[in-house]
Simulated assay, not measured.
Amino acid sequence: MTESLAITRVTHSCHLIEIGELTVLTDPWFSQKTFYHPGEPIAFQPEELPHLDAVVISHEHYDHCDLDAFKRYPHKDVPMIVAGPVVEKARKVGFTNVTPLEAWESTNVGDLTFNAAPGEHGVYEVTYVITGGGRSVYFAGDTLLTPELRTLGDRFGPLDVTLLPVNGLHIRMAGNKQVVMNADEAAELTSVLRPKLAIPQHYAFTAGPIGDRLILKSDKDPTLYVDAARRHAPEVPVTVIKPGERLVVAA
């Protein structure tokens, strides 16, 4: 039996993924500070979230691992599946059920399986293929495009949804080093994975006028990915979700 599937954008790379009766939160971000602004509304605060059956965190950067804010979520025993460096941070703010995964490891929560896949970023990162109820979602955090990611379809079968970062973030102060895949690279991966639906993420982020001019450089327009996907993978539908919007994905 194929379960229902819905994706709700909170902000940035933070989403609610509903598979059947189970709800997963990705990369919590609920606040902002100097040089870290979502660039779009934050649809919910932790105390406004529905009951969560699991949380996945790709890496320890604040805009993906805002645990000082997320600690306001009232259920500290929620299962958290995280990159290794996040474990101590999560436990320090009171979460008690924290499982680290390395790439190609997996764990189960209820009827869902969380499969960790490689990621490459400025710090250690893992990405996740979440499967269950005849559904599968690939959540890519803010990784670069790496050769291993091209194998996900072979490893895990057809994907219903891919959530891919698209802003091509560069660090100006590190020799203009690229740390996130850009729209064309995300579209290239889309053409390889061929999901039933592709959703861009990680694009509106801004470091503010000074930070964007001196520290970071990125593309903030998700339609760059929409256009690139039309060129690379014209058979794959692409949908841009606004914060707070819930999208039901057809079977």
Results as ranks from 00 to 15, higher is better:
213 R>F: 14
208 G>W: 08
206 T>W: 01
168 G>Y: 04
201 Q>K: 09
185 E>I: 08
179 V>Q: 02
170 H>V: 12
171 I>K: 09
184 D>W: 06
208 G>R: 09
173 M>R: 15
216 L>D: 05
167 N>Q: 13
220 K>I: 11
216 L>E: 08
210 I>D: 10
192 V>M: 12
187 A>P: 04
192 V>W: 13
168 G>W: 02
202 H>A: 07
180 V>D: 01
191 S>D: 11
166 V>G: 01
173 M>I: 15
182 N>V: 05
191 S>T: 08
160 D>E: 05
219 D>E: 14
161 V>S: 07
174 A>R: 15
177 K>M: 13
219 D>M: 14
213 R>V: 11
159 L>T: 11
199 I>H: 00
162 T>I: 13
208 G>Q: 09
193 L>R: 06
157 G>I: 14
165 P>F: 01
200 P>R: 00
172 R>P: 00
177 K>P: 04
220 K>H: 15
202 H>R: 03
208 G>L: 14
167 N>E: 11
190 T>M: 06
163 L>W: 03
173 M>Y: 12
171 I>F: 08
211 G>I: 02
211 G>H: 03
198 A>G: 05
220 K>S: 14
197 L>S: 07
160 D>L: 03
220 K>V: 15
188 E>S: 14
162 T>V: 15
190 T>D: 08
169 L>H: 07
198 A>P: 07
214 L>V: 15
200 P>W: 00
203 Y>P: 00
157 G>N: 13
196 K>H: 14
171 I>A: 10
165 P>H: 08
209 P>V: 10
178 Q>G: 03
217 K>S: 14
193 L>E: 02
180 V>R: 03
181 M>R: 03
199 I>W: 01
182 N>R: 06
195 P>F: 06
218 S>Y: 04
208 G>Y: 11
217 K>E: 14
168 G>H: 05
209 P>A: 12
201 Q>M: 11
204 A>G: 06
167 N>T: 06
172 R>S: 01
164 L>M: 12
179 V>R: 03
182 N>E: 06
198 A>C: 10
186 A>C: 02
167 N>A: 10
209 P>R: 13
188 E>H: 10
170 H>S: 09
173 M>G: 02
207 A>N: 06
207 A>M: 07
189 L>A: 09
192 V>C: 10
201 Q>H: 12
185 E>T: 10
205 F>E: 01
196 K>Q: 13
186 A>Y: 00
183 A>E: 05
161 V>W: 05
179 V>D: 04
206 T>I: 05
209 P>I: 11
187 A>F: 05
166 V>A: 02
158 P>I: 11
162 T>R: 07
200 P>M: 02
